[in-house]
Nucleic acid binder design. Sequence first.
DNA 1: TTTAGCACTCGACAAGACGGAGTGCTAACA
DNA 2: TGTTAGCACTCCGTCTTGTCGAGTGCTAAA
Lengths: 344, 344
Amino acid sequence: MLTERQLLILKVIIDDYIRSAEPVGSRSVSKREDISFSPATIRNEMADLEELGFLEKPHSSAGRIPSQKGYRYYVDHLLPSETLSQVEIVNIKSLFAQKIHEVEQVIEQSAQILSKLTSYTSIVLGPEIFDTTLKHLQIIPLTQDTAVAIIVTDTGRVEKQAVTLPKGIKLSEIETMVNILNDRLKGVSMLELRGKILAEVGDMLKVHVSNYQMMMQIFEQSIKQEKNDKVFFGGKTNIFSQPEFQDVDKVRQLLEMFEEKQLIHQIFRSENSGITVKIGQENNFEAIDHCSVITATYTVDGKHLGTIGILGPTRMEYRRVIDVLNHLSKGMTNTLTNLYQRNK
Amino acid sequence: MLTERQLLILKVIIDDYIRSAEPVGSRSVSKREDISFSPATIRNEMADLEELGFLEKPHSSAGRIPSQKGYRYYVDHLLPSETLSQVEIVNIKSLFAQKIHEVEQVIEQSAQILSKLTSYTSIVLGPEIFDTTLKHLQIIPLTQDTAVAIIVTDTGRVEKQAVTLPKGIKLSEIETMVNILNDRLKGVSMLELRGKILAEVGDMLKVHVSNYQMMMQIFEQSIKQEKNDKVFFGGKTNIFSQPEFQDVDKVRQLLEMFEEKQLIHQIFRSENSGITVKIGQENNFEAIDHCSVITATYTVDGKHLGTIGILGPTRMEYRRVIDVLNHLSKGMTNTLTNLYQRNK
DNA sequence: TTTAGCACTCGACAAGACGGAGTGCTAACA
DNA sequence: TGTTAGCACTCCGTCTTGTCGAGTGCTAAA
């Protein structure tokens, strides 16, 4: 168990390092107002903290820097109280005051704002399509054997999907099918779409359409959604301004990661309501060994919709980022709830 | 006017520098098989070439590197003959052999391939919407006062656009309008869409729809296209492997440029049929002072459709890139021509 | 238990030495 | 007259050395 004094010193060191990105020496700690003991004493405590794994030394005669364990303890127990100014809070709120009509717009804007407010890189995972319901389905033939299927959800999301038409299909029959489907499936959750059609609409279709097999083939193609939902970035290059990214190779690694939506999803997706902080190797991914990921979820009616998060160096302004994320995710939740409500 | 020998030396130096990225000295030039004179002679020639502005020295006791003017001359007069192997040519062709249904897919794939074949960064500007014709228009109401407009073109491109509904509008009237528009505007070039409706369809609309003004308002919103068409990247990080990008700041500058679609468009858009090579500052943009941009266009029926290009260091394998671009743009042109033809 | 003092360590930085690659010039050669 | 060998010179990159300063750990005294 750490003593009060050790906690104080640990906190001061981490705060200082977050600010300066330079190893913190005993002398500079002792100069702080709230520290009343000498550098020598602090050195002793620092040695203890190092032994316990909370601090480490870049080399034998440098100051100390926080270890991953140190950051973890800091985040769990030593965070200062909320530091956002009232002005900033009001600012964030006012961003959501304007009328916004489109879900995607809300999300993209949030990503932009988040990166601006934190000067790290923000990543927002779009709402998962399965939480939305069908608004409209359309199949538009382009040529003899191709068509494009369009699905519109209640959130205004539009998905298109190229479709190959089986040979000998009649256009009029496609139209019939689409009409029936629109009639029967409007308002059905995207998740249940496939089940519903098999269970309830199938019989009806068989009556009105001569080639049920072919039609189902088309339909299956149409709703074949990309597994990964959209990913929005804000301030992609922000993180490269951090002093820990002076190495082109690290930059390359991160950039390559950014391109892999799949991976981004894996790293950022969060189920817990509230804030999740993953520090350094806790992310289990080499390219971000020295980064932390902080995520929050946005919801509608308590239902998980998507994730909004920040990627920064482990030496991150945790307090600030957490605060901004908190307010922003609340704002998103409110705005989106309104949007969804209106669509009901 | 340059002598034969000077040309030979210039070519050798540039070829060598493109390969090695190191300044080329007189000794290493003299060692080449096709060079029969001594380093001293070469030094004299090099001094002349420098005076003429084709070469420059990084510092007084280093070898020579090509100047921008040098590269320009090389590209205009000294390119070796086509170097692609038959195998590679066949490979490129076979990529287009498979049946592809979607225009966007063709384009995205081409971007990928291009970056793989060249190990630089490829950028492809999608087909400009105005060259396509309307296939289908739809307006789907989401709430009391919002809707989403969807436009499908003959190329299978789907554009969505959020629309605000004027108060007191009747849904049934929107439907009427959309039906009329679809009837009358199908097959009309996206370019002429707006003119056509005012000139020909307007009168008809006025008859069938009570609030012409409101309807036009909706319509105007719907066809408000983003000015910039889509941009596809391939191998975004490739260029950062080049030795000239060891500086994080340069990397940042380029990355920021990548985010600005507007700018990318400006830099890459090409009208000339055939290959366009812009070297270094010829691009008139600081972030790519030391880069060259090579572009080709892809067409349908001789009509310009879009641009496919490469961004690499000025020290670029011009011959190879030009060859790959040539074959690729031809392949795209063929494939797309087929696609468009079928859609007629 | 705290702290002053001191020897020690290590990195950062500057200055100097040195080797190598390459140049420009000159004089001799074909 | 064009070509080339030879040589002095230049400049970069790297290695070495020395110095400074920041910081540490240990010890002994308060």
